[in-house]
Computed example of a mutant assay.
Amino acid sequence: MATAQRVTLSDGATTWTVIDRSFSLVEPVEAYLEYGRQVDFRPNTTRAYAQSLAQWWSFLEETGTSWDAVKLHDFGDFISALRYGELASPIRELRPRPVLSDGTVNLRLRAVMSFYRYQADSGADAAPFLWKQAQVRSGRYMSFLEHVARRNPQKRATIRIRPARRAVPVLAPTTIDALYEAESVYDPAHAEWDGDLRYRFLWALLAESGMRIGEALSLQHRDWNTGVGGASARVAIVSRAHPHGLSAKSGEREVHIGSRLDRLYADYVWWLCDRGADVALDDWESSYIFCNVMRDPLFAPLRTESVYAHLRSMKQRVAGLPNPMTPHWFRHTHATALLLAGSPVHTVSRRLGHASVQTTMNIYGHVTEDAELSSVANWREYVSGWEYPNV
């Protein structure tokens, strides 16, 4: 079956492509992915699209269908195979149960649709039924001279999956506090932090900034601008090549940070220095904030996989941590708390780095003043538990 193949370029950057079951490069897919690289697809986007298109190519190989001769029913069969996990399985259940959510299936299908959209724009006569010409109108209001405006019709997909909206997971303040305490606590008798301060700082950064895990792990010390004279600290999220392929998914932006978290960063810097980071690192400014401190290579960038593995271990130690919890739950919690506290949607959208306010509304439009979320309705009260002694 076709697979997504990781490729290391001459400059050290990582990208992805698709090879078929005979281990040959899938040229039409590679042409599309190369187009994506030229228009600055994020590394994670390229990877996700490559994996989705590898599944599509496996489906075509299994059914003996040429990519440029597909019919409408082929897409329906592909959606069904994705939903019920039948792509790589010769077994077909009489009453199959879904193994992928509609949202996940929709993401896979979006990559395939984008591939065919590119091929159509390049002049290929493949699956023309996937797109229809539609005149776009912005609401019911029409300007005085709207009837003489020459607006080009836009292509719209004819195949869509509308997944049911799911509740956004939110962590309670007590749960976050319990995780902090399990990671590291301040010992006033010895004026030092006991435990792994690195992870306490990481969870605090995710919870108080709304960053994605990839954005946090991509931070270098030069990106953290400490506040002076009462001004808030500013953290720059910068797009740059990362040894592990991480990237700033939403592009570059600046996030303002409160004084508590800024002080915790200062404590963390001293914590690293106590472990020899200031001696081992030749270029402190360009070194990564979150790094290895327990194993070799020391002070090398921390991997996402290591964070997830650590969180799994913490679920065994901290009562109340939900089993499905991921680092992204901190981002959901941050956004939900800000919206419930009355922050304008456009402000929350900019802080999260969303492409548009509509993206924020699509995810968090359901947020209301219900009893389940009342504990995070006031952001100041929410972060009060994150205060720690002055050191």
Rank of each mutant, 00 (worst) to 15 (best):
S66N: 11
D40R: 15
Q51R: 15
I79N: 00
G36D: 01
L60F: 05
L82V: 14
A50G: 13
Q55I: 09
F75Y: 13
Q51F: 10
Q38W: 11
W57L: 04
Q38V: 13
S52N: 09
A81Y: 06
L53G: 06
Q38M: 14
F59I: 00
G85W: 03
E86L: 08
F59E: 02
Q55S: 05
D68N: 14
A69P: 15
R42S: 09
N44F: 06
W57H: 13
S58F: 10
F41A: 02
R37Y: 09
F41H: 12
L60D: 02
V70S: 06
D77R: 12
E61Q: 13
Y84H: 14
F75W: 09
A54D: 05
R37F: 06
S80E: 04
N44I: 09
N44V: 08
D68I: 12
Q38R: 15
Y84S: 07
R47C: 10
W67M: 02
G64M: 03
F41T: 00
R47G: 02
T45R: 12
G64E: 01
F59Y: 15
D68Y: 10
P43M: 01
A81K: 11
R83G: 01
D40H: 14
E62L: 06
V39Y: 13
R83L: 09
L60T: 01
D77G: 02
S80D: 04
F78Y: 12
G64C: 03
D40C: 08
I79G: 00
F59D: 01
G85H: 03
Q38Y: 12
K71N: 06
L82W: 07
W57M: 07
T46R: 11
E61A: 03
Q38K: 15
A50H: 07
F78E: 00
T63I: 00
E61M: 07
P43S: 01
S80C: 05
T45K: 11
W67S: 02
L60S: 02
R47E: 05
Q51C: 11
G64N: 04
F78A: 00
R83F: 05
F41W: 15
F75G: 03
H73N: 09
W57C: 03
L60H: 05
T46N: 11
